[in-house]
Structures are given as C-alpha cells and as structure tokens.
Design a protein around this nucleic acid. Sequence first.
DNA 1: TTCAACTCTAACGTTAACGTCAAGTAATTA
DNA 2: TAATTACTTGACGTTAACGTTAGAGTTGAA
Lengths: 144, 144
Amino acid sequence: MRIGQLADLAGVTPRTVRYYESLGLLGPSERQGSGFRYYTQVALTRLQKINDLKALGFSLEEIAHMLPLYFEELSNRCHLQALIEILQQRLQETDEKLVSLSHLREDLQASLDRLQRVLEESASESSFNMNEVNTQEISGLIVD
Amino acid sequence: MRIGQLADLAGVTPRTVRYYESLGLLGPSERQGSGFRYYTQVALTRLQKINDLKALGFSLEEIAHMLPLYFEELSNRCHLQALIEILQQRLQETDEKLVSLSHLREDLQASLDRLQRVLEESASESSFNMNEVNTQEISGLIVD
DNA sequence: TTCAACTCTAACGTTAACGTCAAGTAATTA
DNA sequence: TAATTACTTGACGTTAACGTTAGAGTTGAA
C-alpha cells in the first residue's frame, strides 16, 4: 500500500508518516522507481505501536528507543546489552509512574467522596431544591 | 516571600511562576505598592501540586481544571456539579491510563526476559567470552 | 547613600510534533 | 487522452510551555 492508505489505517496523516520516517521511526520505505513510498502490514503494526506508546505519554524520542524491543532483531551482544539497560530504565520509570498514578487516583476518589458529601449536606440543609440536583448521577461516579 | 524564593523552593523559575499566573493557575498575587509579587506558603503548596500533576503527564490546561479540587472552596451547587463531572472524567481517564501502563509494564518485562534468555544462550554458545558479559547485572533487572 | 541583586513588563526565541501550502510529478478514472 | 486524485520535496505556520534578553524600577545590605 501507499502512504495515504497506511496513514488512514493508522489514523494519522501522510505528513505524520513522513515525519516519523525522518526521525527513523519507520525506516525508509521502498521507492519503486516512481518515488512513491510503498508499505506492508509491518509498517502498519509499527505505526500502531507508536500510537499506543504515544498515548502513554512517551515522546517520539523515547519511542525511538523502545521500538527495537518490539521489532528489531537482536544483532550483537553489545547492542543487546544497550537495549537491556534502556529497558531496565523504562521499567523503573513505568513503575514510578504507576505509583504516582495510583496516588492520583486515590486523590481523585477522595475528592469525589468529599464533594459528594458536601452536595448531600447542601441538599439536606435547603428545604427547597434550587437547582434540580440529580443524586442518581452522583452514585454512578465511583468506578471501583 | 517574593517570586525568586518561591520559584527556588518549588524548583522552577520566576518566569514559570508568572506564566502560571497568566494562565490563572496561581491567582494574581498581592502587589504591595512596589509592584512586586508577594507569596505565602499556600502558593508554594499549589506550585508543588502543579509539578506533581505535570509529572503525571497532565497539561497545564488540564491542571487548571483539577486544581480547584485541591484548593478552592466549593461555592455554589452549580459549580460543585461541574467539578464533579470533571472529576468523574479524570477518574475514568486515570483508570484507563493505569490499565495501559500495566500492559506496557508487562511488555517491558516480557522483552526483558526474552533479552535475558538470548544473552544467556549467546553466552553458552561461545566458549570464550568476547565482551565481558556480567550476568549479575541481568539478575537485578526484574523489579517485581 | 550606594550599588549589587532582585523584580517588573514587553517582546522575541525555542523545541516537539506536526499542519498547511506551493509547485511539480505519478497514477487512476472517465 | 484528459481530468481528477495521490504523492513528492520544501518551506513556512502553529501550539504548549516556557527561555532569554532588554530596559527600567525596587530592595536591602554595606
């Protein structure tokens, strides 16, 4: 397939594909004489993985370091050790991020509970309902 | 305290503090005649919370929506309901992010295990050690 | 009082991750 | 074959989150 179709399937624009290529994230595709880029399913898989990692908040530079772990061959031992170190670092950062996010989640839940109580209090205080407070909405807030 | 000290304590620059103020993240501080900004401990706490949220990958715009949950008073019921909705959304997004991050962590761990095995194989294959592979480093990689 | 250090506003510069436009070429459809 | 798409490179534009510089006023210690 060509760049337009690849971009559509991956939910990005051709511009983005070319940009990723310029950063070395997508390897220089085949140019069959015409100058057009032609791609296979592999490129799509790679693009989707890039999107996944981006959604997790990684920069393209970081992603460039992580992609070999998913796609590239493990050539020599030297390269392999470098990858292991990168991976070790990523794993640690991920664990830290998980901890922080868990804390944030607790904060959010606590704030939610607090607001809920405040809302209930204000509901019982005022004898007539000014703003049509729907308590059904509130009971659905707790996800856990 | 003035802007320089506040910035130092929070690990940012005065420029950043002014920028946050321009976005409404730090409220217009007191200007005692001279035109200088004077802050209290409250501003520092607020700045630190901003830093925490930034570390979690939230944009300043998102943070602007979250800060009231930590600091502002819950004035009227209308405002309160708006906050509850924002919080509900954040909580859901956080849960999704936690799931994705957990998956990433599994991927990283799996890749690490794989690399580890490859390294061991290459070590047992070659009778003489070309690159001084230190197997101690590898056993320390698994965090769990 | 004086002078270095701090602060003010205003404005231009920077990086990441693209968007958008231009001018030309290739492919496809009528 | 002619007209519409799709693709090419190149270059300038954009947003977020500040950095940096300039020119002028303020503080506080010696």
